[in-house]
């Protein structure tokens, strides 16, 4: 569906179902240089299992218009604006990678609006090396290739897939290539600049589920564990052989874990 948010036309995947703002809302926030297609194997599945899904493309990403947002704090404010426009009072936030930083910020600062958190491929800080930042500015195709290569675990590199005939690496590259040319650089800069992750995590009181990949080289599991330890009462699922792109690499682990965590 299309929706204007702060005057910008936004694309929101709802998993192929009409959206009910009074339902059990599950907002899926994509990571750096990604878009709603991160959750291609979660959005439809969970939307047909009792959840009302909103998987937006942030501005400048996927099928959304506009320019990418500059900071994690801006992204959190933008999600609140989205919830307001959609008539949503409270929601569960499910983030992946950079989307988790936004989720931490939301949960800590908008407690009355956020019911639960699901953090996938996450850490309290996601510093990005200068080489990748520079490449995302000057050689975007190379940066995309590097990120998809580093981001996926061993089975993706062997072109194994739960979706018959699909290559996760090449699909991942094309997903990133859809975005505004400035999106990846803006996202990486936003990740680098965000310093509130640890304090936000410590302030979280909502039930939280962390799903981590044992072979994740972008947000290594040791940092994910630290985040889980910081969030009071959080639960953790570790997928030993998964890399950073867990929604594609182990879709049913995500789907089953989310349903068990949310009790549906």
């Amino acid at each position: 569906m299309k929706q204007d948010v702060n005057g910008v036309r936004i694309h929101i995947a709802t998993g192929g179902r009409d959206f009910n703002p009074k339902g059990k809302i599950l907002v899926m926030l994509h990571g750096s240089g990604q878009n709603h297609l991160t959750f291609v194997l979660q959005a439809r599945y969970l939307a047909h299992r009792g959840y009302d899904v909103l998987a937006p493309d942030f501005p400048g990403h996927g099928l959304s218009e506009g320019e990418p947002l500059a900071s994690i704090e801006d992204s959190a404010d933008w999600v609140i604006a989205l919830l307001d426009i959609m008539g949503v009072e409270t929601a569960t936030i499910m983030g992946h990678s950079q989307g988790c930083l936004t989720a931490l910020e939301l949960a800590a600062n908008h407690k009355s609006r956020i019911d639960e958190l699901i953090l996938i491929g996450a850490a309290m800080a996601i510093p990005v090396n200068d080489y990748l930042v520079d490449m995302s500015d000057k050689a975007l195709a190379k940066a995309i290739k590097m990120m998809t290569s580093w981001g996926h675990g061993p089975s993706a590199h062997m072109v194994d897939n739960t979706q018959p005939g699909h290559s996760m690496l090449d699909y991942g590259r094309q997903v990133m290539d859809i975005n505004n040319r400035a999106a990846l650089l803006a996202d990486l800069n936003a990740c680098n600049a965000y310093q509130n992750g640890a304090s936000a995590a410590a302030a979280i009181t909502q039930p939280t589920l962390c799903i981590l990949g044992g072979r994740d080289r972008m947000t290594p599991a040791k940092f994910g564990r630290k985040m889980a330890d910081t969030i009071t009462g959080s639960k953790m699922v570790m997928v030993d052989q998964a890399g950073h792109f867990l929604p594609a690499e182990c879709p049913m682990v995500i789907n089953d874990s989310v349903r068990e965590f949310l009790g549906k």
Binding site: L41, Y45, V159, Q163, P164, G165, H166, D170, P251
Partner: peptide, 27 residues
Amino acid sequence: YNMEIGGHLYTRISNPTVAVLEQRVAA
């Protein structure tokens, strides 16, 4: 059937051995 997840339901549509070949050619 609703294309929510990947997997096989009938060999006219997909098959695990054929899928290996498909993924190899795609790669």
